[in-house]
Simulated scan of single mutants.
Amino acid sequence: MELMFWWLVPLGAVGAGLAAWAALRPDRNANARRRPAAHAERLTSLPEYQAALRRHRRWLAVAASACGALLASTLLAAARPVDLGTIRPEQHNRDIVLCLDASGSMSSADAEVVEVFARLAQDFKGERIGLTIFDSTAIQVFPLTDDYGYAREQLKLARDAFNGKPGTSGFLDGTWSGRGSSLIGDGLASCVTSFPPGRDQEGSDQGSAADQAGRQPQRSRSVVLATDNFVSGDPILTLPEAAGMAKERGVRVYALNPGDLDYGSDAGQPGAQLRAAAELGGGAYYALDSAEAVPGIVRAVQETEASALQGARRAVVTERPDLPLAFALLSGLVLAVASWRLRP
């Protein structure tokens, strides 16, 4: 244990010494108020007087000790005792990008989709998440981050914008800069390329010999894609091409489809195409109105490379004022009782 403001201890000791010296030094004018009394030894020699004097002296000693303990403990608490140590926090090695189709055909379902995203942001612990919205062009709302408070704040803004709340239409600015609408392939490709290139540089003392030689385990990469897959226009990349890019880069796509209607078993139907794109790289497909949608995505992403990394060492300062403050409280109570017993 160390004292953060250690210099308060000698300063307080000097102050206490000066106060004790001022209180105990002889007073030259003390005898001026005294009057001689004859045969006082008859009173002071009585057994009752001697017993009362001993009790008084004992309570004086108790009061003096309690006062000293109170001053010492409060001085120690004011010096802020702390414990210094280092920790290596555990970090999960997952990156998750939430990819939201902001086209007009999704307006009625966008608010519900954002609610799903908000639940995802609350469920993940230690992962980095990001949000990208797209229509004819893609806009990155916020990059990969582990600041979940900021992420939820942005998701609330997105919810208000999709609900048509006045003053929030600017949230979607930039998503309509290109030609066409709901260009799913381009949107998914933008989400895939939002992951940092190469391997993650956060180290770990555990792992294989190759990892300990300097090759750190790669973070798992997942895209949670919400779209009805109704394309209007000519995208640069089609959905299968974007799904192939995701597979090449080791990104799993988990698709949410709020417009999952029964168009038959034709592989060219929007729902079937979206399912094929999600499952191409080992992802999964969910209808948003299914009760299993959110839990299923959470379970699937949680199961992808769920190993943990040890973060960089961090210095931790923990204040320990409990013991001196408790001792000060106890000393104050003892001093109060002694003062009551010493009252005239």
Rank of each mutant, 00 (worst) to 15 (best):
Met1Gly: 14
Leu3Glu: 01
Trp6Gln: 10
Trp7Lys: 13
Ala22His: 11
Ala23Arg: 14
Ala32Cys: 05
Ala32Phe: 10
Arg34Cys: 12
Ala52Thr: 00
Leu53Thr: 08
Val62Pro: 01
Ala64Thr: 09
Ser65Ala: 15
Ala72Trp: 00
Ser73Asp: 00
Ala79Glu: 04
Val82Asn: 01
Leu84Gln: 07
Gln91Glu: 13
His92Asp: 04
Leu98Pro: 05
Leu100Cys: 00
Ala118Asn: 11
Ala118Asp: 05
Arg119Tyr: 03
Phe134Ala: 00
Leu144Val: 00
Asp147Ala: 09
Arg152Val: 13
Leu172Ser: 06
Trp176Asp: 13
Trp176Val: 05
Ser181Gln: 11
Leu183Cys: 10
Gly185Arg: 10
Pro196Tyr: 13
Pro197Met: 07
Arg199Asp: 13
Gly203Arg: 15
Gly207Thr: 07
Asp211Leu: 07
Gln212Lys: 11
Pro217Ser: 04
Ser222Tyr: 08
Val223Asp: 08
Val224Tyr: 07
Phe230Asp: 05
Phe230Gly: 08
Gly233Val: 12
Pro235Val: 12
Pro240Ile: 08
Ala242Phe: 03
Ala246Ser: 04
Val251Gln: 07
Val253Asp: 02
Val253His: 10
Leu256Asp: 09
Gly259Val: 04
Asp260Pro: 00
Asp262Trp: 06
Asp266Phe: 10
Ala267Val: 03
Gln269Lys: 13
Gln273Ser: 06
Gln273Arg: 15
Ala276Leu: 04
Ala278Phe: 00
Leu288Ala: 12
Asp289Pro: 00
Asp289Met: 11
Asp289Gln: 15
Glu292Lys: 03
Val294Asp: 02
Ile297Cys: 07
Val316Thr: 14
Ala326Ile: 11
Ala336Pro: 00
Ala336Val: 11
Val337Gln: 02
